[in-house]
Amino acid sequence: MRFDLWTFALQAANFLVLVWLLRHFLYRPVLGVITQRQAATAKLTADLEAQAKAAEALRRGLEAERAAISGEKAATLAAARDAAAAERKTLMAQARTDADAVRAQARSSFERERADVASSLGRDAARLAVAIVRRLLKEPPAAAAQDAMLRFVCDDIERLPEEARQHVLEQIAGEDEAAPTVVTAAPLDAETQRSFAERLGKALGAPARPEFRVDPELLAGVEVRFPFTILRRAWAEDLNRIEAELIHDDGAAKLA
């Protein structure tokens, strides 16, 4: 084995030359292309980042505008809601006032109509009641009612003041001897006439011979007619008085 210094030197020189040649023909062009592409990529990336930043700024601006619009919308809605609430309140108050007025007017009208109707009904009812009573009393009165009426008349005579009773006695026991007339709604039988004559004489304090008549208009009443004095116990008169009171007074209201 021998170490050739010329070969060593030539190989060293060859290597250096090769480094230079490859640097010129290989590395520099390839690295240049790579660098150029990296620069283009960096520029593209920078452009994209700038565009992204611009887009982000635009997005933020739009978000701010949208937020402002949202706030304005909310304020407008709130104002509209408040105005609507106020308007509603006003309308409700107005409607309530109108309703109260209408209700009061209706109530007044109703009360008035009700009073009129009640009054009219009362009058009709009074007339109807009186008519009913009249019709009922036009029937032949019961004996008990007739007796009661006769007894009441005798009692009335007994309760007359002494002076008035003497005056009546003078009328029927005087020179003219005018007999009292007993008017009834229904004819009395003989026994009843005799009994009543006795009771009448007892009430007057002197015998009496009354004349008996019939007047259906008395309606179960008794009327004793002296020459200048009339004693009456008749339901017809009472009914006329009651009807007058019910119709012309506030009896109808009471009935209603």
């Binding site: 170490f3 060593f8 190989q11 060293a12 290597f15």
Partner: peptide, 14 residues
């Protein structure tokens, strides 16, 4: 060439 010592020596010296 690397099978010869001169070339390897030249590379090592480089």
């Amino acid at each position: 060439p690397t099978a010869h010592l001169e070339t390897d020596a030249a590379l090592a010296v480089m």
